[in-house]
Structure formats: C-alpha cells, structure tokens
Design a binder for these strands. Sequence first.
DNA 1: GAAGCTCTTGACACCGGTTTCCACTCCCTT
DNA 2: AAGGGAGTGGAAACCGGTGTCAAGAGCTTC
Lengths: 360, 360
Amino acid sequence: MTSSKTPNKSADESDVNAALESGRRRATINDIARLAGVSKKTVSRVINQSPFVREETRQRIEAVIAEWGYAPDPQARGLAFRRSFLIGMIYDNPNPQYVVNMQLGLLDGMRGSGFELVVHPCDRSSPTFLQDVRMFIERQKLFGVILPPSVSEDERVADLLRDIGCEYIRIASVPLDEEEHMIVGHDRLGAQAMGEHLVGLGHERIGFITGLPSFRSSHERRGGFEDALTKAGVKLDPDYVVQGAYTFESGLACGEALLAKTPRPTAIFAGNDEMAAGVLQAARRAGLTVPEDLTVVGFDDFQIAQAVWPPLTTIHIPTREVGRMAAEKLIAREGYEPGDPAKTIPYLVTRESSAAPKKV
Amino acid sequence: MTSSKTPNKSADESDVNAALESGRRRATINDIARLAGVSKKTVSRVINQSPFVREETRQRIEAVIAEWGYAPDPQARGLAFRRSFLIGMIYDNPNPQYVVNMQLGLLDGMRGSGFELVVHPCDRSSPTFLQDVRMFIERQKLFGVILPPSVSEDERVADLLRDIGCEYIRIASVPLDEEEHMIVGHDRLGAQAMGEHLVGLGHERIGFITGLPSFRSSHERRGGFEDALTKAGVKLDPDYVVQGAYTFESGLACGEALLAKTPRPTAIFAGNDEMAAGVLQAARRAGLTVPEDLTVVGFDDFQIAQAVWPPLTTIHIPTREVGRMAAEKLIAREGYEPGDPAKTIPYLVTRESSAAPKKV
DNA sequence: GAAGCTCTTGACACCGGTTTCCACTCCCTT
DNA sequence: AAGGGAGTGGAAACCGGTGTCAAGAGCTTC
C-alpha cells in the first residue's frame, strides 16, 4: 500500500482520504465524485438538482456528501455562474432598531439557502452615491439587493438596478414598482388605526407631528391619520400639524410648539416613537400629566415605546417579518410561495399613554 | 475588418473593445493585459503591488486600469488565494444600537480596502453553535472575523478560530488574548469614573444594578465602581447590589427592590442605560423626583440616555471608534499603525439625572 | 567575450466549480 | 434484430484570477 505514482486509484485513495479525514483539507467535488464512484459532473448535477440523475445514484452521492460534510465552494460556483451568493442590504435608515430588526428578518428568510448578507449603509446625498452602489453590486456580482426605506424610494437606484440587471426588492409603505419587486408595509393603515383609536377615545383637537418629508412613510402616516379623522367627521386642523424630523429633540420642540397653542390639543400623535418620547418630555415640562391631561401616541413600537413613562400607545410595524418576506421573495427558492401580505400590516398596540380627554 | 476567426489579435481587437465600451461586459485582466500589451501575469503583479515590475510598465498598466475602470473579480481572486475578501461580524449582543454602531465602525475601518462585511448573529446556547460558526467561516473562507462581546469572551470560539487558522479580533472589556487579537474597551475605567462622580457629589449609600453575569463587562463595571468607592473610603454594601439583566424591565424591578430598602440609597448606578431608564420609572412610581430625591446614572450613552427624563448622566463608550480600530487591526494594511488605545476608553457624560444628595 | 548576476516578463498549470459536447447505455419501437 | 430516442456520465474547456518556474534583457565582473 505504498504511495506509488501509478494512476491506480485505489492505491492513492487511502492517502487522499487521510488528508481529508484529518481535516487538513476540505472535501472538493472531486473527492465526492471519487468516493461515490461517479464523475464530478454527476455530483454537480446532484448539487444543482438536475432531474437527469438516476434516483439510486443521487442517493448514493447525497449519502457521501452528508458523510463528509461537503459543501460546494461559493466562490468557485459563483465564478462559474458569473454571480455571487451574496445579498446586499443597502440602507440609509437612521434608526438602529429598524436596521437590526430588518437584518434579522432578512437572515431569517435566507436561513439554509447558502446566501450571506452583506450590509452597505449609504448616503443618498453623496455625489458619488449611485456610482458607489453600482460599484458595490458589480464588483461583488451580488445575487440581489434589498432596499429598505428611504433608499427604496429612490427611483435612480431602481433604474440603476434594472439597468445592470440586478435582482432587487424594495420595501416601502406604498407600491412603487412592479409587484415582484415590492414588499409593501402599508403605514397608511397603521396611521388610520391610530386615528380611529384617538377618535374612539373622544379626542377632537389632535396635534400631529410629521416625520422627515424625505420619507414616503411620513406622508402616508399623515395621510392615513387624516383619512380616519375625516371619516369620523373630525377635522385635522393644519395649524396643529407641525414638521418634525423623527428625532427625540424634534419631538420635544414640536411638542412644546403644539402645547403652546390655544386651545391646547387633547392628544398628540407623533410620527414615530422617538418624537413621542420627546412630546412626553415637553408635556412634563409643561406640567401636564400623561394621559390624564394629554394623550401622546407614537408609531413603530420600538423599544423606546416601552422604556418611557408612561409606556406609549403606538403602532407596531412588523419589521422582522417584512425582512423575512423580502429575503424569501428575493431568493424565491423552489417551492416558494409569497408570504401573507396581511403580515406586513402595522397594528395598534394600546399602552398607558392614551386615554379619553378630560370632560370640559 | 470582419470578425474573422483567425487568431489575429489586432483584427478582433475592435470587436472586443466594442463589447467592453458598450458596457456589455466588464473588463477582465485579459482585456487589460491586451490593452497594455503585456501578459495577464504582469497585470496581476501590478494589482498585487509586486515590486518586480518596471516602473514604466506599471504606470502604463495603471493608466489602462484607470481608463477602463477595471477592478479585479473578488471571487476569482479569492479562489486563487484560497480565501475570500469577506469579513464576518459574529455577534450575540442584544442591543441594536451597539450592533449598528459597531457595524458602522467596522465599515469605517474597512473603507476602500476591498473587503465587505458579512453579518452573522449567533446563539451561543445553541447545541450547534460552534459547528455553525465553523461552517460559516470555512464555507465562505472568511478573511477574518470580528467578535464583539459576549461571543468575544467565549474561549471555545477563540480556540476554534485558532484551530482553523482564521484571523480574528476580539473586542472585550479586558485583555483575553494576545495583544494582536484584542481591542480592549476598559469598561472598568468608565465605571471608576462614575464612582468618582457619585462620591464627588457626596453620595455614600449607593445602589448598584449589575448586568448579565454572562457578560464580562458586567463584572468589570461593578469592579471598577467598587474600586473607586473603596479608594474614596466609601463601602459598597452587598445588600445594595442587585442582579439585573440589562433590560428596561429588569431595571424597573431592581429599582423597586433598591428603593424598598431602608435606608433608601441616595443614588443608583445601573449597569446600562436601559436599566437606568427602568430605575427612573421605579422612582417615579415611588413618588421620587430625580435627581432631587434620587440620583440615577447609567452606562453606554446610547440614544435612550437622552430620550428619558431627566436625561441620564452616563458613561459614553466609543463603540464606533472601537469598531473602526478593530477592522483596521484585522486587515492591517500596509502602513497600518495601531490606533490610539486611549480612544477606546469610556468617559463620563454628565447630564441632569445626577446631583448631590439632600442634606439630612 | 563568456560567465554570472539581477531585474522583468510570460507560459502554463491550477483554484473548485459549471457548461459544452459527445459517447454510451438502456428501453421501446417497428 | 436493427433503429431511434431519452437518460446518463466522462473529457475538456471555461469562469478570472494567482503560483511556479524558466527564459530573455541588460549589466557587471574577470
């Protein structure tokens, strides 16, 4: 059993196996082919689920693959396929919790698929923005990209992706593209639910703090809210709508502005939880008790909603679920069936910051 | 100038260039070689900064590369190099803001290096944890991994990485490994600073809420705090130390427990900001005003510290800077020089939640 | 003027997969 | 029994780079 140089396969086999078994070397497709007694092309067929393999052969090969824990090299495969097994998340959302939840959701949807997630924050105002995105995608030959808001709302990016033929999913509060490229969050419906909640409690003089106008969701949230009020016969006084910036500080400032109005609003709906937290603080400074003197509600249901006093009534957005659906749609594996769109709809979470207004 | 099938290079050249110029095809190393009139091996030498290229040749090739915007294919390069240009961030830290800041820092440090960041949350308690990590690294042939707490504190992971020969940087509050594998955060020093601050204000009966014992930082924060008190001749009564879990809820519960003690502490130092926010709420429920009746301080200086009332005096940890240094150390490019270790040291941020205790 | 050296350069195999092309089985017709 | 089609597996080229090694150019040295 010496390591002769003859092409006698069985003679060298033990050497090769030794190298494999000791873990000095990962198994390659050639090893699997040799061990299963077939050509590497056949192994390749099994890996790629070709139907042209006899069932018996397939099973033998799969057994060998499982036994040796073989996994094809994504780089080699990618090189031959002319694309990688990487999915890019290109984002410019400033909220850490949104970003992390989205990442977790994407990973949920990618689990077991062999794809990996590459994160790529971006700055849409940079002069090299589009070029950067293009470079990122082309260099890495990304399989596809996921675009959460607000990059998802940038048509320049969508055009670019179509142009270079990169798969993409846009996550947004309204349909902006063909259905196959969209996961829609329907912020509008969430805001409507909040409107109904406030009206249901008996509020009629309600302040609203908008989010950044650069986010489509800001307009949707306001629009949905206004829809609900109008439907209930309550008017949203434009004088009680102020422009926030999705930050705690802006919520504080806007809250103070709204509370300075006469008559004072009995409720304030902030475009997100952070601004609502700011309003809480403004209320405290004004000597008001929430929810007795003032109802304060937010949107997002991020951690902060439960970490303030009183805990915020807010709209829960299922970010992680949205991410999962986006990833699944992007890779659309065999047997893929679209997730239930209803799962992406935000819903009301009632906590202690909202109550009926005091009787006058 | 027909597209003959003769191997005459100059005859086909215009066709090839047309394909390139129209953007139908990305430039390859062969294109660059042809355009520069050299072999692809020489182009490869230029790309890899080999010194064995004549200056004149190098410049000619670089000019062609710049003109055509050529960038080598990371997959092909990786295949030949037997490793990828991907850096993995393996983490189990539950705090979104920490995670995002860390990611941003890592990306800062990787900018322009040609590496990409692949995120990989993990569950250390899973039975397949080590196997998952190994699979992730080996399949993707990762260039290296970054380990933030608390995975960074798991010796099994470090052993695994050494075993499979993967570069790694551990980020932790104390040195756990050889210097070349560590970025140290020195939570202890931060906690000391807080101890000095509280003692300096005149507090002597101080409550402390520890973090999760599975995080090394929890012990460091407690230890550093105790150091500072001892040094100042103040005793940290073990009865005033309670076990939290780094969450808002645990902070609330622990706060209530501490405030129920007689005599009541005049100050409470929570192991992180979230727990401090919980303590604020407990104080409010107990009818106490912060900081007049009770000083409450936290640790981390995450967003929540400024989104509660009163804003928290806390310890700022420079997460993003730490991440940047970790990435730079991992890829240790030419001309790399270690970042200033002082930049990773946490520091006190005084806000409105701390004050001198009331005179009795 | 030939040997010896350094500096440059390119031919060729290879990384680990996939695709193309072809030959060889089967199995079923006629 | 010959002919045909579909199913199956092998050889070789290819994806876009890098490693090895040897050869050619130019210079010194004796």
